[in-house]
């Protein structure tokens, strides 16, 4: 008791903060820091499964060499998943922004439409999505029906039409994936003060101009949040092929060391990608700072 009295307010504050944070920090060490370090160590080893557990055997860079030279599956998979992200992220962002702008209009049934747009987050993720994709449910009859194809093939050349319809197919998946992002954009749109639009309107700005001069700069932070969320969400997505491949390597082939290696390569590439995102946003973020 006496000792506690002697603490300054500042020390007490620090102690309190860390006591609130301690549970999370212990968890971080247990479930994040130590596994991450171990996985880095394993990536330079070959792990043998014995009765005493996993026995590491140092083989240096051999796992990394294998990933980039002998493994025929890994590089194409890596390319696919990174390229997939690079295409998916802007598509999701554009669609989510578009949907949020529509849903932000005052109208009858707004809550209903918002509820509908969020529905795929509840049902079309995880196992159910996998089942539906297997049945080709993402290919809406609208786009794949032969009558639409035949109707359009006269107007648009076949070489252009086919990829176009395939893209339309892919778009349904993009739309189903953007539920949370729409909500985040909506929340962002609500924070933009209406008086800004009024002022722009009085000064003669068109809707188009006030979108690019007001809305877009004001919700740049939300674009960053959504970009990060989309990238992070793709890791645990049921359609993440890197995850399936690592699971296959680790649990079917019992190749623990190599599994860690490709996990780390994936991690490094993702971090480079995220670094790039931050670099792109740094300028626009610092310019919006303090405007709120």
């Amino acid at each position: 008791m006496k000792k506690r009295m002697r603490l300054t307010i500042r020390t007490r504050n620090v102690l309190e903060a860390y006591s609130f944070l301690s549970l999370w920090l212990i968890g971080f060490a247990l479930f994040m820091a130590i596994p991450l370090g171990r996985s880095l160590y394993y990536s330079f080893n070959q792990l043998k499964v014995t009765k005493e557990g996993l026995v590491p055997n140092w083989i240096g860079m051999a796992n990394f060499r294998r990933a980039f030279s002998t493994d025929v599956n890994f590089i194409p998979l890596l390319q696919d998943s990174i390229l997939g992200l690079l295409i998916q992220v802007p598509l999701i962002l554009i669609f989510a922004m578009f949907a949020a702008l529509l849903l932000n209009r005052p109208m009858i049934g707004r809550t209903f439409f918002r509820g509908v747009f969020f529905l795929p987050v509840i049902i079309a993720s995880g196992a159910v999505l996998v089942e539906m994709l297997e049945q080709g449910a993402e290919r809406m009859p609208l786009f794949t029906s032969s009558s639409l194809f035949l109707a359009l093939v006269d107007i648009i050349p076949r070489d252009v039409l086919e990829p176009l319809l395939t893209l339309a197919d892919k778009l349904t998946l993009v739309m189903w994936d953007s539920g949370v992002q729409i909500l985040i954009f909506l929340a962002g749109l609500q924070t933009v003060s209406l008086s800004l639009y009024e002022a722009a309107d009085i000064d003669g700005a068109t809707k188009w101009e006030s979108f690019w001069k007001i809305t877009f700069p004001m919700i740049t932070p939300m674009i960053l949040v959504n970009t990060l969320f989309t990238i992070v969400n793709s890791f645990t997505s049921a359609r993440n092929e890197m995850m399936l491949y690592i699971r296959d390597v680790v649990f079917s082939k019992n190749d623990y060391g190599y599994g860690s290696t490709i996990g780390w390569i994936y991690f490094i590439l993702i971090f480079l990608l995220i670094g790039l995102v931050f670099l792109i946003f740094r300028k626009s973020l610092s310019s919006t700072e303090g405007r709120r």
Binding site: W24, M32, P35, R38, N240, R247, S260, Y266, F267, I270
Partner: peptide, 21 residues
């Protein structure tokens, strides 16, 4: 930064040690 870091680490990377743990 640790929180942000934990948010961004792909679970793929720590699959093996977590399973072992």
């Amino acid at each position: 930064s640790l929180v942000l870091f934990a948010f961004l680490v792909p679970p793929q990377t720590i699959v093996v040690p977590l399973f072992q743990l």
